[in-house]
Design a protein around this nucleic acid. Structure first.
Length: 598
RNA sequence: GGGGCUGUAGCUCAGCCGGAUAGAGCGACGGUUUCCUAAACCGUAGGUCGUGGGUUCGAGUCCCGCCAGCCCCGCCA
């Protein structure tokens, strides 16, 4: 309906100008904004224009009279009367617009033949970087990586669908002090791990990492050795390099198992990738006069952000010992991503999907990048923050033993619970299914539940993780949406021709309110996609898909399809087909595959 | 001390650019099945939108103060 909304907006502007030419002539006048919005309630029609109300004061007229004058001018436009029924003026001066049923049917018809379901491909596409997931080498992926991975993937999918060339970058933690610690520790306790691939498994590596961290925190000699080890590594020492390479390879393979399970595609480009550019970052900042040496550290002082003593807060880009830190790497990454090829990605939009705790850090780093002039005209640099994953007690999610929850275990449990639920249901209904079917459904439902529960929440707030809620069969959950798709597949199995062959030329004539409700819901899809692309809020897409499922279920419950009168059958089958296509596409953009039966 | 985020029904949460009587889901209570999977549908109850001001024709939404919770705050990432 985006196209129609644009048309209506233009028509309203013309009507306003014609109704009040004296205002149109004023250069400093109030101007005209139709304030066109989707109708807030079905009884108000399809759209409402609220633009008459703000004109009341400047024009010195009653808002309803202003609305009436606008409506009169609208009615004088043939293009408008072809599109809409007679506008209604309601309340204090709202103009309610209802589209002609045949225009709605036209729109449905267009979408039936359109694989993009009415979503236009983007014009003038330029690369978009989505930086997400980003686990640390030599650690296992845990619940803390869940949200970034799932949200980032979904945003990337939406942007890709719109036609942007998307670089999905996995900015893994593969550099820095942590490696000094780990390698130093391993040299002493498990030297074979540094020269032989897979000498220890990742779980052990994680334990070693923890030990190394503990030693680092209270053993000064160990700290010193670790720092020296980092210097060796950065200096390209072959032994250190090889150890590092082995650790990275091993972690990479473990990460990939998770990504494969979740059907997530990512290009690894870790922190180390930017090492060759760190010097240039500092030089660049120096050349643009932003760099200040303070206490031996080279930093950029932020504008508008002050610390304890009221002094501006610094972003440190080179430590007093000459080393670089994460801010330097992040700056190098921004610089590289916006820079033109071959020494850059040529991006026009760079998106970081990380927890909200890093908001200050990114705000600082972004400010420096902007002031350094690294963003091209129209370049967008955005932090997409999200809240913590909490348990049902409202505290940070932990295992019973108090450990961090591994992502692997979390996914396993979701699938196990989905399987148990399915088996119980099969037993209750006396159904018998093949083992392969059960495994496939349980896996799909379990993983879908985890993804959907995360995505359906406004990402900025903390997220209360609950297997029971996400796997519930009713409510705003993955199983509920998947079930709507299954119901439509059931119609096809029982002889409904969803491919459109049945009376393909028959006009789409709808008679029931449930049909119209479904039509209107289906036509919202393009606007929802546009909104997610802009606001980077996948929960808006979830809400839409849930509402679509609800409207469909109401239709399914109250309006027969297969047993409809012969002339009513084709249009109803068409609605089923478009609903299924919309749900499949929408869920696909959330990274969730659908099922034919469940 | 400074900064960020959050505060909406018993619980979990939506709420678009400020628009009409603030919405879902769960839970509670009550209904619906000779018919496409009842994993569904229909209905009832449940709200000082943390709080006090301000702006506006109109504020859950914007501005300021306050309260509460979480997070961040110089050489870790």
């Amino acid at each position: 309906m985006l196209r129609i909304a644009q048309t209506l907006d233009a028509q309203l502007r013309v009507a306003m100008e014609r109704a009040f030419p004296q205002v149109a002539a004023q250069p400093d006048g109030p101007g005209f904004d139709p304030q066109l919005a989707p109708a807030s309630k079905p009884e108000f029609g399809d759209f409402q224009a609220n633009g008459a109300l703000p004109l009341a004061k400047p024009l010195g007229q009653a808002p309803r009279a202003i609305a009436a004058a606008i409506v009169e001018q609208l009615q004088g436009q043939p293009a408008f009367t072809e599109l809409c029924l007679e506008p209604q003026i309601a309340g204090p001066g709202f103009i309610n617009l209802t589209l002609r049923p045949e225009r709605l049917a036209d729109e449905v018809q267009l979408r039936l033949g359109d694989p993009r379901l009415g979503v236009p491909p983007v014009q003038g596409a330029a690369p978009v970087v989505v930086d997400f997931s980003s686990p640390n080498i030599a650690k296992e992926m845990h619940v803390g990586h869940l949200r970034s991975t799932i949200i980032g993937d979904s945003l990337a999918r939406v942007l890709e669908f719109r036609g942007h060339p998307v670089l999905r970058l996995n900015h893994v933690g593969d550099w820095g002090t942590q490696f000094g610690m780990l390698i130093t520790h391993l040299k002493q306790v498990a030297p074979e791990a540094l020269s032989t691939a897979d000498a220890v498994d990742l779980g052990d590596l994680v334990a070693f990492y923890r030990q190394a961290k503990a030693r680092f925190d209270d053993d000064e000699a160990f700290q010193t050795t670790s720092r020296e080890e980092v210097v060796k590594l950065q200096g390209g020492d072959p032994v250190s390099r090889q150890a590092w390479q082995l650790l990275c390879d091993q972690s990479r393979r473990e990460f990939q198992k998770i990504y494969d399970r979740l059907a997530i595609r990512l290009s690894e480009r870790g922190e180390s990738f930017y090492n060759p550019y760190l010097e240039a970052v500092v030089a660049d900042l120096d050349a643009s006069g932003l760099l200040v040496t303070d206490d031996g550290a080279r930093c950029v002082f932020l504008e508008g952000v002050s610390g304890k003593d009221g002094k501006p807060l610094p972003v440190i880009v080179q430590k007093s010992d000459g080393g670089f830190n994460y801010a330097t790497t992040d700056l190098a990454a921004i610089r590289y991503r916006f820079a033109a090829a071959p020494e850059g990605d040529g991006a026009r939009r760079v998106i970081y999907v990380t927890d909200a705790g890093q908001a200050n850090h990114f705000a600082g780093v972004f400010q420096v990048a902007r002031r350094a002039g690294w963003l091209p005209d129209g370049g967008r640099l955005e932090h997409v923050p999200f809240g913590l994953v909490q348990g049902e007690d409202g505290k940070k999610l932990k295992t019973r033993a108090g450990d961090t929850v591994r992502l692997r275990d979390l996914l396993d449990e979701a699938v196990e619970r989905a399987e148990a639920d399915l088996r119980r249901r099969l037993a209750e209904e006396g159904r018998s299914e093949e083992e392969a079917f059960i495994q496939h459904v349980a896996t799909t439902v379990g993983l879908a539940a985890v993804k959907y529960a995360d995505l359906s929440q406004n990402r900025i707030t903390n997220y209360q993780f609950s297997f029971d809620r996400m796997l519930a069969l009713q409510g705003n959950t993955a199983p509920y949406l998947l079930y709507a798709v299954v119901r439509i597949a059931g119609i096809a199995r029982k002889g409904g021709d969803l491919a459109g062959g049945e009376a393909a030329d028959a006009p789409l004539i709808f008679t029931e309110p449930q049909e119209w409700a479904l039509v209107r819901e289906l036509l919202r899809f393009d606007a929802v996609i546009a909104e997610v692309e802009e606001e980077l809020l996948p929960n808006r897409l979830c809400t839409y898909l849930f509402e679509l499922s609800q409207v469909f279920n109401r239709f399914y419950d109250q309006v027969p399809v297969l047993k409809a009168e012969p002339e009513a059958r084709p249009p109803r089958l068409a609605l089923c087909r478009l609903t299924a296509d919309t749900l499949k596409l929408g869920l696909g953009l959330l990274g969730i595959p659908t099922l034919e039966r469940m």
